[in-house]
Design a protein around this nucleic acid. Structure first.
Length: 113
DNA sequence: AACTTGACAGCAG
DNA sequence: GCTGCTGCCAAGT
């Protein structure tokens, strides 16, 4: 029986569109907490895969990060490549461009900046 | 109730 | 620029 915190994390990850990635820090910020590690633990226990694209959650330093199954980042990278995200030697290509930012409260200017 | 672990992030060397 | 240590919050033992 998952905790409300884990459900919140999974719900946040579920919002990540295909072909995009996000960082644990972004999720933590979106949840209004600095528990980046707790987020990682929650995602690691994610029983809703692949409903929750946990493989789209990467590290903030541009690396794919770890993954469950003991495969390390191998499986994670494979899934990301299927999503159209290029990954070289565990490093995400165009990382800054691939990062997905959670929508703010409201955009005063819908123009996009 | 307390200690340890964890799919990380950030700063210092 | 890269490697290493500390800090963070939550969950598990």
């Amino acid at each position: 029986m998952p905790t409300p915190f884990q459900q919140a994390v999974w719900d946040a990850v579920r919002q990540i569109p295909r072909g995009r990635v996000t960082t644990y820090g972004e999720i933590a910020r979106h949840l209004g907490t600095g528990a980046v590690r707790a987020v990682g633990s929650a995602v690691a226990k994610n029983p809703h895969a692949p409903a929750v694209p946990c493989h789209r959650v990467v590290r903030s330093d541009g690396m794919a990060g770890q993954y469950s199954g003991g495969q390390g980042m191998a499986t994670k990278i494979a899934l990301l490549r299927e999503e159209g995200i290029e990954v070289h030697n565990g490093r995400i290509v165009a990382f800054e461009s691939a990062i997905w930012r959670y929508p703010s409260q409201s955009v005063t200017n819908p123009s996009g900046r």
